[in-house]
Amino acid sequence: MVLDFLYGAGVGLALGMTGGGGVLAVPALMLGLGYTLPQAKPVALIAVGSAAFIGCLDGLRRGLVRYKAALLMALLGALFAPVGLWLAKILSVTTLMIIFCTVLLFISARMFAQAVFPHISEGNQEQNLLTAKCLVNPSTGRFQWTNRCFVSLSTIGGVSGLFSGMLGLGGGFIIVPGVRQFSNLNMHGTVATALAVIAFISAGTVSAFLIAGGVIEPTAWRFIGAALAGMLLGRTLAPKVSGSLLQIGFSLLVCVAAVMLLVKTLMPFLH
């Protein structure tokens, strides 16, 4: 029982502080609590989606959420989530786990490089701003909508939904770097908008799961409740913690989780 609360709070804390901490939900459930991937996916999505909704409300209160962009990405995410669910049914659990671990390792490497080599990241960001497809109007703080902006955000939302359905990921690890890559929206606005999208996509994916006859174990609600509490704490602590230090720690944690899951997945084939 205690582990349910500890792992759930940890996931919520990471999500609240980084916007992409939801990638740890499935590893926490599988490695820490003994869930299988099919069991972990809906629980992770409910926990991450609920926690993201709390963070989204906080972002709305502060005027940080770009709600039109969030709704567009969420709509495309909801449309592609069933495709991810379908892929999850036709692919073996081993294949899904290898894909999942590969995604985690990519996220870890990218975040670590950005934190350790900030000058390179800043240079890339300056270059990105010259070719940004979604520019924020400095006088209103809102996106200047163009066809390129519409297509870019739609693509980000669709890919997020696909991974949400297939692997049980909220999609923040795609939304945050994606929006940062294609726009000049600041980090606080990006995280707040990502949390709104995650909440909508997770809700759509879980609804599809339940409509298809899926069941959530009663004990899973302890993990979900703790994730909500962790989110509230994370949103409070985020402004007080060094961004680079937090990013390095988070990237290393994701890397360890990915390696442990990969070893666990491949172990039966090594005997």
Results as ranks from 00 to 15, higher is better:
residue 137 N to W: 03
residue 154 S to N: 02
residue 102 T to G: 12
residue 153 L to P: 02
residue 128 N to I: 13
residue 149 C to L: 07
residue 136 V to W: 04
residue 149 C to A: 14
residue 110 R to A: 13
residue 146 T to Y: 03
residue 120 I to G: 00
residue 113 A to I: 12
residue 138 P to Q: 04
residue 148 R to Q: 11
residue 148 R to H: 09
residue 109 A to G: 05
residue 150 F to V: 12
residue 118 P to I: 07
residue 123 G to N: 11
residue 141 G to C: 07
residue 107 I to F: 03
residue 133 K to D: 06
residue 138 P to W: 05
residue 122 E to N: 07
residue 143 F to L: 14
residue 120 I to H: 07
residue 131 T to P: 00
residue 113 A to N: 08
residue 138 P to M: 06
residue 132 A to P: 02
residue 138 P to E: 08
residue 145 W to E: 09
residue 127 Q to C: 09
residue 154 S to Q: 01
residue 150 F to G: 01
residue 142 R to W: 07
residue 123 G to I: 10
residue 138 P to L: 06
residue 103 V to M: 12
residue 103 V to N: 00
residue 113 A to V: 11
residue 121 S to A: 15
residue 155 T to Y: 02
residue 129 L to M: 13
residue 124 N to Y: 13
residue 134 C to T: 13
residue 141 G to V: 11
residue 117 F to D: 12
residue 111 M to H: 02
residue 155 T to N: 00
residue 127 Q to E: 10
residue 107 I to P: 01
residue 112 F to H: 06
residue 144 Q to R: 08
residue 140 T to A: 06
residue 140 T to M: 05
residue 115 A to T: 06
residue 136 V to Y: 01
residue 103 V to I: 15
residue 145 W to A: 05
residue 134 C to K: 00
residue 105 L to Q: 03
residue 137 N to D: 15
residue 143 F to E: 04
residue 151 V to L: 12
